[in-house]
């Protein structure tokens, strides 16, 4: 597949609701130290939709993602797949679920087990697809195809260890993994926060192609409001575990209603308008120490 040098999001009609979260909460710890990381959120993801969840650090984005992925338990509320509560009890059910819902993460360097060869990552996906007993030659075929989708040559990767790849190559390989699994939902937790603008466009390009081919739903979790605006159909703004605003990209970014969104937007550096560094509301909550913590002796 020839690599394109122009990336453009195709807008499309969205109807079929795929995944729905109802009153979902996550509480870490218990008793006095309980921390409500995600607090009663509701959302609806449709087939082929691109969603962004934007919010400050510690607002619970990753926690929500982990709940959806089934990597952490849901304290309250439920998750519905095509209107049915998700089946997530037995190992077989979990595997079935993970065939449909997958993720890529922020830091390509920590996404790999440095002790196993990288072919393993792709082989494991084939195993998850239930094709463990396929003859090796066919597995190689699948892997070669996946690698060429992300412009890597499989022959060059075999028998290599992750640290012998560049960060960009590692991130592409993660996308190749998704290509093999072809999940219905992909959660991308800050997939581009470590890369430059050009590589970000390349990664976007590949993810968008996947969406167009497989009708995949992609959830971007990001600090990058520009990216969120550019790619997504729907944006959720998250603060302290809650969604303070949600709507189509244009609604949320161009006509924000909540004060928090407005402030967030004013903090984003632009190249077209001057960036206001003087405003006083900058010295925000971050500088106020909760007196209860009382670190001073």
């Amino acid at each position: 597949m020839a690599e394109t040098d122009r990336v453009k999001v195709k807008r499309r009609e969205l109807t079929e609701t795929f995944l729905e979260g109802k009153n979902m909460s996550k509480v870490y710890g218990m008793g006095r130290r309980a921390n409500r990381a995600v607090d009663n959120v509701n959302f609806k993801f449709r087939r082929g939709e691109i969603v962004s969840i934007v919010g400050e650090s510690g607002s619970g984005k990753t926690t929500l993602a982990k709940m959806i992925l089934g990597l952490t338990s849901i304290t309250e509320g439920q998750l519905e797949l095509y209107g049915q509560p998700r089946a997530f009890g037995t190992t077989a059910e979990k595997r079935e679920y993970w065939k449909n819902i997958q993720a890529i993460f922020q830091d390509p360097f920590s996404t790999y087990n440095v002790f196993s060869k990288i072919d393993k990552v792709l082989l494991n996906c084939i195993e998850l697809r239930g094709q463990k007993d396929l003859p090796y030659a066919q597995k190689v075929e699948i892997m070669t195809e996946a690698c060429s989708f992300v412009n890597l040559r499989f022959a060059e990767l075999t028998n290599k260890y992750p640290f012998e790849l560049s960060g960009g190559q590692m991130q592409r390989l993660m996308i190749a993994r998704i290509y093999i699994l072809k999940p219905k939902l992909l959660i991308a937790d800050e997939p581009t926060s470590m890369v430059d603008a050009c590589s970000r466009a390349t990664i976007l390009d590949m993810l968008l192609k996947l969406r167009d081919e497989e009708d995949m739903t992609i959830v971007f979790i990001t600090h990058d409001i520009g990216l969120a605006y550019y790619v997504s159909d729907t944006i959720y703004i998250m603060k302290s575990g809650q969604f303070v605003e949600q709507g189509t990209s244009d609604e949320v970014i161009l006509h924000p209603k909540s004060d928090y969104t407005k402030r967030l937007l004013s903090d984003v550096p632009s190249i077209y308008e001057p960036w206001d560094l003087t405003s006083d509301d900058l010295l925000s909550e971050e500088d106020e120490f909760p007196t209860a913590a009382g670190g001073a002796p």
Partner: peptide, 8 residues
Amino acid sequence: HLVAVPGT
């Protein structure tokens, strides 16, 4: 359109 320079 965004520019994505192909290659590595």
